[in-house]
Design a protein around this nucleic acid. Structure first.
Length: 879
RNA sequence: GGGAGCAUAGCUCAGCUGGUUCAGAGCAUCUGCCUUACAAGCAGAGGGUCCGCGGUUCGAACCCGUGUGCUCCCACCA
C-alpha cells in the first residue's frame, strides 16, 4: 500500500470524525463501569468559536478521551446557553434592520423572531467544536431554554420563593440604558476614565448671599438632589446646622444633613445627595428620610420629574447644565479628574444607578455549604490560589438581582392580582386558585404576569443537574432519575476564572440546595488567551485569529497541540501561531516515523539480534517510566507538561534513539520479533498521544496494521503503569554519553558521518554488555571497538562514566587544544571536588544534614576523585 | 482602598520537603550536514547578577523582611 508522503489532515479529520460518530464512540449510557463526566460550559447559543473556547474545550477533550481509554464510561455533555441580554440585543438589531421596532410587535411576535434566529444561528458553535475533534455525546445536547429545562428554571424560582429565599423589592440597581434592563453587580465592568469634577455653588436659603460649594462628576443629577451632606466634625460647615440649601435651576429647598460617611478631604467636603441615582446617596436617603426624585428615563434621558432638559440625553445635559450654571454664576470651577465608571459588560453602555422594582435571591444562607465545601476540599479549585478569591466573594456576597427587563428568557412566574397582590406559580389557572385561597376573587383575564425574565445565570446555575434530570427541582426526593444517579456529581469542570462567581459558585450553591451534593469534584480554571504581546484577545483589537482558519491551515491536531504547549493552569497563555506550526511539524514527524516502520520488510526467518532486543527492552522501560510520570502530571492537571513529556518521548526517545537503534541497515530486512515489538511500542506511543492528537493517531493506528471492525484507538486501552527496570535506564545513559561524545569529536574534527571510526576503551568491559557496544558501533558508524590497556596518546578522548575513551584518527590532532579542553574539565572537576570536600569538612554539615545528603556528598567526592585521576592521566600522556 | 499572584536563557515556562555533576525544557539563534522516514529534517554549540537590597542557615533560585516592576480580582468615595 502506498502511503502519502505527507499527512492530509483535512481529508483525514473529516472522515475519522464521522466514523467515530457513526460507531457511537462518543455516546454514553449508564452501565456498570465507573463514570467519567464533564458538562461543557455552555457557550452562547448564537456565539462563534473563539480562542478561549478552543483552549477549554481542548482540555476537556483531552480529559474525556483519556478517561474513555482508561475504560471509564466517559460522558461529555454539550449544549448552549440562551444568553438573554446578548441574544436579545442581536435580535433587536436584526429587527431594526428590517424596520421593525421591538415594542411595536409585542412579546409573542418578538419571541417568534428570536426563536427563528436561534434556530438559524444557534448551534453553529457546536458544529465548530466538532471540527476541533470534541468527543461530546451529541445526543445529549442541551439548551437552557429547552422545554424541560425551561420548566426546571421555573420550578426553582417557585421553590425558592416558597422557601422565602426570593423577594421583590425596590432597590438601587445597575441600569443599562442601552439594554434597557437591570444587570447584576458582576455584569458591571469598572473602567478608569478621564472625567471632570464640577464645583457648583448652592445658595443657603436662610443666609442671604452665602453659598455652600459641592463637587460632582455628574452635574445633570443636580436636578434630583434632595439634600446636601457634610461631615459633623467639619468646622467649615458647623454653622449650617438646621439650615437649608437651594438646588440650582429647580430652586428646591433641601436640608443640610450631617453624616460621618463624608470624606473631609474630597472636593469641598460637601456632598450633593441624589437618592435616586447613586447608591451611597440612596443609603443616606434611607438613613435621613430624604425625598427620592427619579430624574432619568429608562433610556438614560432626563424625565419629566427633572423639570429641565426633558427628553435630552444625560451626557448632553451634563455639558449643557455646566454652561447654564456658569451663566448663572454658580459654577465655581471645573477640574480634571480620573474616576471609575461602570460599564455594561454586554452593551458597553455607561451604567446608571437607578431605583427600580426587581426580584432578588437571598444569598446568605444558600451560599454557606458552597463556601464550606470548597474550603474543606470537597470541591477542588485548580490552581488553588483561586480559593482565596472564592472565599472572599462568598463571604461578602450580596443578594442576587435575578430579574431582567427582557423578553428572551424564562419569564418570571409571578402573577399580580388586584391591589398589587402577588402569587408565584406556574399558570394563570393556579394563580386564580392561589388568590382564591386568600379569599381574593379574580379571573385569569384580570391577572397580569410579571413582564420580566430571569437572569441567564439563574438558568445555567442548574446546568450539571438539569442536563441529566430537569424534573428534580422542588421535589422532596432528591434521588433523581437513572442518569442523575449515575453521572452526578460530575468529575471535572473546565472553565475560565472570569466566571468563577457568575457560574461556578452558583452551580455549587444549586448542587447543595437541590441534590445535597457537589456538582463536580474538580474545577480546572484555565488562563485567558492573550496574544504574544500579552494583550487580551478581542474583536476590537483584531488580534484574535479565527480558530477555524487555524484548523483549516494547520489541522485540528496541530492547533490543539499549539494551544496546550503553553497553557499552565490559571496562568494566562500567550498564544502564538508559531505554536500551531510546531504542532504540525510534530505531526509530520510522527507521520514519517510511521512511514519508516511501515516501509520495513520483514524476514520471518531472521532471528532477533541481542542489540535489537536490548533496544526494545530499553524503550519499553523508558516508555513505562514515562507512563508513570504522565499519570502524576495528569493528576495535577499539568496539561502542557504532559504534552511536552509525550512530545519528547516520541521525538527524542522513540524517533531519534530507538528507531535508529533498531533500523535495519540499508537494503536489509528486519526480523519479525523486532518488527512486531516496534509496532507494539509505537502503538503505546500513539495511545498516550491520542488525547492530544486524536486524528493523526487514529489514522496511523488503522494503517499501521489490520484492525477489526470496532478496533479504534479512541477506545483502545490506555497504557497501564508498569514497574520499570532501572538498570536499562542507567545503561542507556552511559550509552548515550558515549555516542554523543563520539559525535562531538566527529563534528569538531570535521569528519563526515559516512566515514567509519574506531573507538578504543581503556578499562574493563564491566557496565556495558555486547549489545550496547553493538548499538554504539551502529549509531556512531564505527568499524570496531577495541579494549586497550594503555591510553592512545595524542588522540581525541573523553571520559564517560568510568570509561576512558579514545578515538584514533589519522587527521592531525591539535595537542594544545586537546590539552586546553582537558584542563578546563579538570579545573571544573577540582573546583567541584573542593566544594564537596569543604562541605564534608564542615562538622556542622555532617552533624546536622540528613544522612542521605551526607552520603550523597561522599559519593560525589569519590566520583570526582576518580574522574580527576583519569583526566590527569590523559593530560600527562599528552604532555 | 482591600486582597491575590508573578518576576529564572532572546521568547514561553519547569524547578517537589532548602543540599553545585540542577541552574533545566521547548521554541528561537549559531555551526556543520540534501546520511536511502523526515531539510517541516539530522548532528552539535552558545546563551542566565535565578528582579535589587538585607536577614535566617553549615548551605538559599527555593525560607523571612524590604524595595522596585508587572498582572488579576474585589470595593458605593462624590
Amino acid at each position: 500500500m502506498e502511503i502519502a508522503k505527507t499527512y492530509n489532515h483535512t481529508e483525514s479529520e473529516k472522515r475519522l470524525y464521522s466514523q467515530w460518530m457513526q460507531k457511537g464512540f462518543f455516546k454514553s449510557t449508564p452501565d456498570g463501569r465507573e463514570p467519567y463526566t464533564i458538562v461543557i460550559p455552555p457557550p452562547n447559543v448564537t456565539g462563534v468559536l473563539h480562542m478561549g473556547h478552543m483552549l477549554n474545550n481542548t482540555i476537556q477533550d483531552v480529559l474525556v478521551r483519556k478517561a474513555r481509554m482508561e475504560g471509564k464510561n466517559a460522558c461529555w455533555v454539550p449544549g448552549t446557553d440562551h444568553a438573554s441580554i446578548a441574544t436579545e440585543a442581536k435580535v433587536v438589531a436584526m429587527l431594526k434592520d428590517m424596520g421593525i421596532n421591538k415594542t411595536d410587535i409585542g412579546r409573542e411576535e418578538f419571541l417568534k423572531y428570536a426563536m427563528q434566529w436561534k434556530d438559524k444561528y444557534g448551534g453553529i458553535i457546536l458544529e465548530q467544536l466538532k471540527t476541533l475533534g470534541a468527543s461530546c455525546d451529541w445526543d445529549r445536547t442541551s439548551f437552557t431554554m429547552d422545554e424541560g429545562y425551561y420548566q426546571a428554571v421555573i420550578d426553582v424560582f417557585i421553590d425558592l420563593y416558597n422557601k422565602g429565599q426570593i423577594y421583590r423589592g425596590t432597590r438601587m440597581v445597575n441600569w443599562d440604558p442601552k439594554g434597557l434592563t437591570a444587570v447584576s453587580d458582576e455584569e458591571v465592568l469598572h473602567k478608569e476614565v478621564n472625567s471632570k469634577l464640577y464645583f457648583v455653588k448652592y445658595p443657603i436659603a436662610e443666609i442671604e448671599g452665602e453659598y455652600i460649594t459641592i463637587a460632582t462628576t455628574r452635574p445633570e443629577t443636580i436636578l434630583g438632589d434632595t439634600a446636601v451632606c457634610v461631615h459633623p466634625d467639619d468646622e467649615r460647615y458647623k454653622h449650617l446646622a438646621g439650615k437649608h440649601a437651594v438646588i440650582p435651576m429647580v430652586n428646591r429647598k433641601v436640608p443640610i444633613i450631617f453624616d460621618t460617611y463624608i470624606d473631609l478631604e474630597f472636593g469641598t467636603g460637601a456632598l450633593k445627595v441624589t437618592p435616586a441615582h447613586d447608591i451611597n446617596d440612596y443609603n443616606l436617603g434611607i438613613k435621613h428620610n430624604l425625598e427620592v426624585i427619579d430624574t432619568l428615563t429608562p433610556e438614560g434621558k432626563l424625565s419629566e420629574a427633572a423639570g429641565f432638559y426633558i427628553g435630552q440625553d444625560r451626557f448632553a445635559v451634563r455639558k449643557q447644565i455646566a454652561i447654564d450654571l456658569e451663566a448663572q454664576g454658580l459654577l465655581v470651577k471645573v477640574e480634571d479628574i480620573k474616576n471609575k465608571v461602570g460599564y455594561s459588560e454586554r452593551t458597553d453602555a455607561v451604567i446608571e444607578p437607578k431605583l427600580s422594582m426587581q426580584w432578588f435571591l437571598k444569598m446568605d444562607t444558600v451560599s454557606k455549604p458552597a463556601l464550606d465545601n470548597v474550603l474543606n476540599g470537597e470541591v477542588k479549585l485548580i490552581p488553588e490560589k483561586f480559593i482565596n478569591t472564592y472565599k472572599h466573594w462568598m463571604e461578602n456576597v450580596h443578594d442576587w438581582c435575578i430579574s431582567r427587563q427582557l423578553w428572551w428568557g424564562h419569564r418570571i412566574p409571578a402573577w399580580y392580582g388586584p391591589n398589587g397582590k402577588t402569587v408565584v406559580c406556574k399558570t394563570a389557572q393556579e394563580a386564580v386558585a392561589l388568590f382564591a385561597a386568600q379569599n381574593i376573587t379574580v379571573t385569569e383575564a384580570e391577572l397580569r404576569q410579571d413582564e420580566d425574565v430571569l437572569d441567564t445565570w439563574f438558568s445555567s446555575w442548574l446546568w450539571p443537574i438539569a442536563v441529566f434530570d430537569p424534573t428534580i427541582f422542588g421535589k422532596e426526593d432528591k434521588t433523581g432519575n437513572a442518569d442523575l444517579q449515575y453521572y452526578y456529581p460530575t468529575n471535572d469542570l473546565v472553565t475560565a476564572p472570569e466566571i468563577l462567581f457568575f457560574w461556578v459558585a452558583r452551580m455549587i450553591i444549586a448542587g447543595y440546595e437541590y441534590i445535597d451534593k457537589k456538582p463536580f469534584s474538580n474545577v480546572y480554571l484555565t488562563g485567558i488567551v492573550r496574544d504574544k504581546q500579552g494583550r487580551k484577545m478581542s474583536k476590537s483589537l483584531g488580534n484574535s485569529p479565527d480558530p477555524l482558519d487555524l484548523i483549516t491551515q494547520y489541522g485540528a491536531d496541530s492547533v490543539r497541540v499549539g494551544m496546550l504547549l503553553s497553557s499552565p493552569a490559571g496562568n494566562d497563555l500567550m498564544f502564538d501561531e508559531a505554536l500551531c506550526k510546531q504542532g504540525s511539524m510534530f505531526g509530520h514527524k510522527l507521520w514519517n516515523a510511521f512511514r519508516l516502520i511501515k516501509g520495513w520488510e520483514v524476514d520471518d526467518s531472521k532471528t532477533q539480534s541481542e542489540a535489537s532486543k536490548t533496544a526494545c527492552d530499553w524503550f519499553e522501560n523508558r516508555f513505562n517510566e514515562e507512563v508513570a510520570n504522565l499519570s502524576d502530571l495528569y493528576s495535577k492537571y499539568r496539561m502542557s507538561e504532559v504534552l511536552m513529556s509525550v512530545y519528547k518521548l516520541a521525538w527524542d526517545d522513540f524517533c531519534s534513539w530507538f528507531l535508529e537503534m533498531v533500523k535495519p541497515p540499508f537494503g536489509e530486512k528486519i526480523d519479525k520479533v523486532t518488527y512486531d515489538k516496534t509496532v507494539e511500542l509505537f502503538e503505546g506511543l500513539l495511545k498516550v498521544l491520542h488525547p492530544f492528537m486524536p486524528f493523526i493517531t487514529e489514522e496511523i493506528w488503522h494503517t499501521l496494521k489490520e484492525r477489526g471492525e470496532d478496533e479504534y484507538i479512541i477506545v483502545a486501552e490506555y497504557p497501564k503503569i508498569i514497574k520499570t527496570n532501572s538498570t536499562l535506564i542507567t545503561e542507556f545513559a552511559l550509552f548515550e554519553g558515549i555516542v554523543s561524545n563520539v559525535r562531538n569529536i566527529r563534528k569538531e574534527k570535521n569528519i563526515s558521518p559516512k566515514e567509519t571510526l574506531e573507538l578504543a576503551i581503556k578499562g574493563a568491559k564491566d557496565g556495558l554488555s555486547q549489545s550496547w557496544l553493538d548499538l554504539i558501533t551502529k549509531l556512531c558508524n564505527l568499524s570496531a571497538i577495541n579494549f586497550v590497556t594503555e591510553g592512545l596518546q595524542g588522540m581525541p578522548s573523553f571520559v564517560a562514566g568510568s570509561f576512558e575513551c579514545f578515538v584514533p584518527i589519522t587527521i592531525e590532532v591539535n595537542a594544545e587544544e586537546e590539552l586546553k579542553k582537558l584542563t578546563a574539565d579538570l579545573d571544573y572537576t577540582m573546583g567541584f571536588l573542593k566544594s564537596v570536600q569543604a562541605k564534608l569538612a564542615n562538622e556542622r554539615f555532617v552533624a546536622n544534614a540528613k544522612p542521605e545528603a551526607v552520603e550523597s556528598e561522599r559519593k560525589k567526592e569519590a566520583d570526582a576523585n576518580a574522574k580527576i585521576k583519569l583526566l590527569e592521566e590523559q593530560i600527562g600522556a599528552l604532555k
